[in-house]
Simulated assay, not measured.
Amino acid sequence: MTTLLNETVLINGQRIATGRHGAGIPVLLLHGTPAHSIIWRNIVPRLTAAGMQVHLFDLLGFGASECPRQADTSVAAQSQLVAALLDHWGLRRAHLMGHDIGGVSAVLFALDHPERVRSLTIADLPSYDSWPSPTWRDIHERFDEYARMPADQHRALMARQIGMAVFNKTLMQGPLLEAYLAPISGVIGQPAFYQHQVAHYDSRYTRDFAERLPGMDLPVQILWGADDEWQPVEYAHRLLGDIPGATLHVLENAGHFLMEDAPERVSEYLQGFIYQTDPEVLDVTRRPVYTTE
């Protein structure tokens, strides 16, 4: 599958695979786990066609980015990459969308650097005490053992887990499933997956959301798959109650990977929210026309 990544950036001496597409309103997309930038492939073209410059990257230890032998790849550490990348791209402020743990990193960045965030869209993110979810709990608690399991067993386990992330189970098959499995398989990918991803499925990064989120002062939109098997929609409503002025859209017939199940609806909500909140889009008659077709 065609990659969205077209540049390599060194941040603190570590190689980060990044992509930049289109021109116009700056938008930064943060993927989650077990995923990488491929999850945005149906979103980016819609955003660029709507007059936006889309920036994205593979988190450190994920996808095509470096998998260092020793590094902090927690959501807190990943949030610190955002400022460095915005500086690299010459962006003082940008609209952020974060999915899953990318959503956690986006929230942490917005709490620490609200002056750099034009708006925040978060989707199906772990929050409060919601993670690791039941289906990942044993894998998280014994991640070092799973890292050493036979390769075929690991791939079968991950195929099952990733299959749970979509509502339409026919989607996650063949080349698409292989594209998700490839970076987390093999002699490097398998142990790196458990070290850099699964080991950090830890609610200690989000337990204080109830205290911190009410102080958030920026436009926030929440998107959620109604059929998310990992992060129940009840947590979306809890986030809605704690974030002042937030809006929530629950997408029917969509699972945890809602960008796979409903890319057109995700794009439409994101575009609409950006147009409503961008301080530099003043003349609505000159806004680019976008479509979900």
Rank of each mutant, 00 (worst) to 15 (best):
H95M: 01
V117K: 01
I122D: 04
A35H: 03
L91D: 06
R286W: 01
P183N: 02
A192I: 04
T291F: 12
N42Y: 14
L218R: 07
T2V: 13
Q231W: 05
F109E: 00
R287T: 11
R93N: 02
R207S: 07
I43A: 07
G255I: 01
Y275Q: 14
E141D: 14
L248C: 08
V220T: 15
D72V: 07
E260D: 15
P244I: 08
R142Q: 13
E268W: 14
G186C: 08
W89I: 00
L248K: 10
G241K: 12
Q53M: 10
M97Q: 13
I39T: 09
T135R: 15
I274W: 00
T247I: 06
S130M: 03
E280A: 13
S127N: 14
L91I: 05
D217R: 15
H154L: 06
A110K: 02
V44R: 12
I274S: 02
A179M: 09
D217A: 15
P191C: 02
A71D: 04
P279I: 01
R41D: 09
R148N: 12
V104E: 02
D208H: 07
E280D: 15
L4Y: 00
L177E: 09
R155L: 11
Q80W: 01
R155P: 02
D202Q: 10
P288D: 08
R204F: 06
T285N: 06
I162K: 00
R238T: 08
I122M: 13
R116I: 12
I188R: 08
M172F: 09
E141K: 04
S185N: 07
A23P: 06
D202K: 08
Q70C: 08
R116V: 11
F209L: 02
Q173R: 15
C67G: 07
T135P: 11
P279T: 01
H249S: 09
H36V: 00
D138M: 10
E141S: 10
N253A: 15
